[in-house]
């Protein structure tokens, strides 16, 4: 198939960016979206134009490194990561716009590459259980009810890609944060630090320049791991409780 791509080019963090149009031809429907960009980059390189910078690593939907706004949708038209999107989801003659994640807390580094260090700093603020190596009790000493373990797992499936932020009109990171609060909060091991965790993470989140949640739900529908919106309820509940207890 033949397509017209309109791609965001920006030479550096402080440079002014612009949309540039690139026609691509003979695209196979079996290609992944990123392989289509690989093909374009090989053509650019041959013509002496600098290839388009974009992030990807595992290309099997689990590392969370890739992420593009594709015709206005985070990760494109399917519920999956950009690397798992295939060209059969498009039709011959389509015009596709490709932009980086758009959020103040994810500044652009170059072209389609953004800095998501803010997510790491939210985890540093409290997204962990303090258990030094070697200090752990026998694994079976604390049983965890299966429904709680399953819900913790569901929330822990978050890959930290940032699609939730990119999809949200407020550029809120609440789904990302709610997933971590729920993952650790469902487990007995996560209880001692539960109040401090939510307060510290939310404080960091706001400090990084993410917006607040207004219950729109775009985050959850864009999430490639289908993290449900109720993890934000959990976050809010935990936060209220912690503040009432004077954390």
């Amino acid at each position: 198939m033949n397509l017209t791509l309109k791609i965001w080019r920006q030479s550096g963090p402080k440079a002014k960016g612009e949309m540039v149009t690139y026609p691509v031809t003979d695209i196979s429907e079996d290609m992944s979206f990123l392989e289509m960009l690989d093909v374009l980059n090989e053509q650019l390189n041959a013509r002496g134009e600098e290839p388009i910078a974009f992030d990807s690593d595992c290309r099997e939907g689990i590392c969370g490194m890739c992420g593009l706004m594709i015709s206005g949708k985070a990760h494109g038209p399917e519920v999956t990561t950009t690397c798992q999107l295939h060209m059969r989801s498009f039709s011959d003659g389509d015009e596709i716009t490709i932009e980086p994640w758009r959020a103040d807390a994810f500044p652009v580094i170059k072209d389609l590459v953004v800095d998501r260090g803010s997510f790491d700093r939210i985890i540093q603020a409290g997204g962990f259980i303090s258990a030094n190596t070697g200090s752990a009790p026998e694994a079976h000493s604390v049983p965890v009810p299966k429904p709680k373990a399953d819900r913790a797992f569901m929330a822990a499936a978050c890959i930290g890609c940032g699609a939730c932020v990119a999809a949200c009109p407020n550029a809120s990171g609440m789904l990302f944060m709610g997933a971590k609060i729920t993952h650790l909060g469902e487990l007995p091991q996560g209880q001692p630090e539960r109040d401090a965790r939510v307060v510290n993470m939310v404080t960091q989140h706001d400090h990084e320049g993410f917006g607040g949640c207004t219950n729109i739900g775009e985050c959850s529908s864009a999430c490639p791991k289908e993290i449900p919106l109720d993890v934000i309820n959990q976050l809010n509940k935990d936060l209220r409780g912690a503040l009432m207890r004077g954390e």
Binding site: F128, I129, A131, T133, G134, S135, A136, P137, E138, A139, H140, V142, P143, V144, P145, K146, A149, D150, A152, F153, A156, H183, L184, L187, Q189, G190
Partner: peptide, 20 residues
């Protein structure tokens, strides 16, 4: 020791209905 350590960190391993 690895399993003990990971459980203490909150790694959500698959569990049976009894919680083990």
């Amino acid at each position: 020791n690895i399993i003990d350590q990971c459980v203490a960190q909150g790694v959500p391993f698959a569990r049976e209905y009894g919680g083990l």
